[in-house]
Nucleic acid binder design. Sequence first.
RNA 1: GCGCCCAUAGCUCAGUUGGAUAGAGUGACGGACUACGAAUCCGUAGGUCGCAGGUUCGAAUCCUGCUGGGCGCGCCA
Length: 552
Amino acid sequence: MKKRIERILQDTLQLSIREGYLNETPDPNFAIQIPADPRHGNFATNLAMIIAGAQKNSPKKIAEVLIEHLQDRDNLISKTEIGGPGFINFFIEKEKWYEFLGTVIALGDKYGESNLGKNEKIMVEFVSANPTGPIHLGHGRGAALGDSLCRVLNFCGYDARREFYINDGGRQVKILGESVYSRWKQLDDPAYPFPDNGYQGDYVKDLAIEVSNKTNLEDLDYNTATNLLSDICKEQILEGIKEDLINFRINFDFWYKESKLYSSGKIDTTIKVLEQRGLLYEKDGALWLKTSLFGDDKDRVIKKNDGELTYFATDISYHFDKWERGFKRVINIWGADHHGYVDRMKAATKAEGIPENWLDVLLIQLVRLWEGGQEVKMSKRAGRYVTLSELVNDVGVDAVRFIFLSKDNNSPIDFDIDLAKKKDSENPVYYVQYAHARICSVFRKAAEQGLKLPEDPGQYFSLLDTEEELSLIRKIAEFPSLVEEIAVDLAPHRLTYYLAELAGNFHRYYNKHRIVIEDIHLSMARLSLSMAVKIVIKNGLGLLGVNAPEEM
RNA sequence: GCGCCCAUAGCUCAGUUGGAUAGAGUGACGGACUACGAAUCCGUAGGUCGCAGGUUCGAAUCCUGCUGGGCGCGCCA
């Protein structure tokens, strides 16, 4: 609907200029909004006010001109008004809303899809947790966001893929091996020293017991033993991570190992490319990249004076590889504590000759847990933190995903476990799911009375004449443009609020008007409307990765 | 010291490239089941949009300066 209004306005503006009713004006960036106050119409635009300056005329005069030459070929608009300082308000022909309702039902689970992305290849890289311990809440938040973004992007016609980058080559894996070794030694000798920067969690002790039972460590020297433990444990932890993610309904398309960058020679190639571009230099025995030429505060080391590559070097190479794999855009989801890294990473991609804006980095803020009115204090360094699987086992996938996705990524989340566990109205997840289950229940009831949706329900829609019914249809009509906006803004949290509103509208409607009644025709009409609501809730929850249950 | 993010109802948060009278949930109080699921609905109360300037027809939104909080500033990963 919104798009049709936009089209009409574009045509009207062009025609007005072409025919000389208005002066030539640069392409205006006008908005179409749904007014908060229904008296201001179904849609409103600020177009007249936006171009008033360039037209050297009052917004109201311009609005009059535009209305007079309105290019409404389909007779979509029943009435226009000029309001406030120069808004043009549009009222849509009721019949057009009924037609729209018919298309929603016909489209079913395709309602809301679009071809916005034109099959463009996008990579979303997220979670990418080190294989040194189980994934925690922050990873879970990133996982929910990345996965939902991919769902939305694919729904909008992009070719979006999920990728997990495995840091299996760095020092942290070595430290994991040393930590496990130490815990194994401590089984006999509690005084055996533990590495200063070792991993503290209890899972390290569990690994020590488990692996030492299967592997003979006694005869190995320290280096051999710790290396062996590193290899075994990182694989085992990675399996656990994969399992946690699958339980969280996330299926990655690609698992990309850092070690592959070394073995495939990608890193050497990348360094050569940068060398050829004249962007490298040596100083203090180290190799530096001139990132400061591309917006970074200062240049960065990619090879240390001991000959080892930095983490940054592998990351540059990794991103060059993403580019070579043909992705037209890349979205990285990082914890906010990595924000200092964003500028240098973007600078590095530019240094590699990759276009500006190719890389988007979404930073996610902290998740704080609350239980029994108190914050659950966590400290990763001390190994005291709640894992994603613990939380999911406690409150369920649907609630965790919905709550994680209900906030903008830039806002910290206070996650109230008690509230998330509640299966009633206080919990927004259940509020939305209940609307869906309730509609399914109504259809079961209708079926008992021999009622079901006819092939062509459109003939009854004109019976939907109450304000509640018309506003429900309008709400349903917002869905496609909202989904597109979410794909552009990378902001799936808006969907949670929309779904709660839609569910609320339906619950109110349900309480006020009976759906299955003696009047068969009116029942058909109301069942159709209910079906459309059900479709949007199901499609919307699907984009969040949340189930739409038929019974609860 | 420099940089990024945040500040909206008692609490948790929305607020769509600046739009018309700033919203929702929750908490508090009071109501609604002899009919489709009361896991719901209706009503009341609640605001100096952190503070001070600026930009304009119009600012919670943009700019500047403050205050308060989170995070980051390594030849660590």
